[in-house]
Amino acid sequence: MSIPPLIDAHVHLWNPNHLGYGWLESIPALHRPYGVDEYRAATADTEIEGMIFVECTESFSDAVSRREVDWVQSLRDDEAWLQGIVAHASLEKGTDVQAHLSWLSDQPLVTGVRRIVQDEAPEFLTSAGFVEGVQLLRDYDFSFDLTIQSHQLEAATELVDRCPNVQFVVDHLGKPQIRDGEWTGWTDALEKLSDRENVVCKLSGVLTEANLDSWTYDDVVPYLEHAVTCFGIDRILFGGDWPVVRLAADYSTWLDVLRRAVQEWSVAERTALFRKNAERIYLR
């Protein structure tokens, strides 16, 4: 089954020799440069129309964010299909983050913001400063990538309710613990979040939430199917999560999982997942 030329809505690039990525030190398979050339090699058998870079520093520093954005934008001369950047911003600063958001808004490729909250307590998501910072994103026409774990889904729903004018993108299906068989709590919470029309969901990061060494198609497909049922065809995006996906499979294998899952879909539905929805959310 063929898929259309795709826009990969979740790609990481890094060079530990340029910026510090302390979180990589405990993951030897990833602790080396992964740049445009490596991504091109990993996707050589896939027709990529464009990709969205998602920030990957760990410092929660706006100064480091600027260095990362500058570096990634410098790569575009080498690869024209680098079409957008989701940059870090320390949104918990509330209105004090405005200077950084203004700087980001002047950068030609920045289209969204992420502040990783997956390791924060759920109440962080509804703290006054963080909510205020997220609310500011509407003024800059930035989307917000919501990188959370499943136990934070309820708090994420409350955050969305407080920011009705912001476009939210749930990364990695809200990280259900597939390897542990988590189901009912995640399904119910994701369905509730999906009732908010300003939220879309990336079909990404699924294999690394399953057993890295022994996952099967049958392990992961129910989670993909539930996300599609919740959000519908027009609110799901494909994300490769490269190179993190390499911990569980190569890029082509992950793409094959999705090909199999959507083999009965129409051409229009597959185009929405693999390209059109990403264009609408990130490249508007």
Rank of each mutant, 00 (worst) to 15 (best):
R162D: 11
A210S: 12
P176R: 03
V72D: 09
L101P: 04
E120T: 11
L237M: 13
V97S: 14
E209K: 04
E79R: 14
A261C: 10
R115K: 13
G20C: 10
R115N: 13
I52G: 11
S252G: 15
W215D: 02
Q98K: 14
V199Y: 09
L24Y: 11
H226W: 13
F142H: 03
V86S: 10
D119R: 13
F53W: 06
T95S: 14
V86R: 08
R40E: 06
Y282G: 09
R66H: 07
P5A: 13
Y21L: 11
F144A: 02
P176K: 02
A249R: 11
S65R: 04
E264Y: 12
E264C: 11
R196S: 00
V262G: 00
W215M: 07
A155D: 06
E191T: 15
A41W: 00
K175D: 00
S59V: 00
A249H: 03
D8W: 08
E47W: 04
Y34G: 02
I52Y: 11
I85V: 14
S74I: 06
Q263P: 01
W215H: 08
V170N: 08
D96R: 14
L24E: 09
E68Y: 10
G84P: 13
F142A: 03
R235F: 10
A42I: 06
E225Q: 15
S143R: 01
C201D: 06
Y140A: 07
E158F: 02
T187S: 15
V36L: 05
V199T: 13
L104V: 05
V11N: 10
P108I: 06
Y251F: 15
A210I: 05
V86K: 07
Q98W: 01
A99C: 05
S252Y: 01
A41T: 12
V170R: 03
L173S: 03
T157M: 02
A189F: 08
T147D: 03
A227M: 09
V228L: 13
T147L: 15
T187F: 10
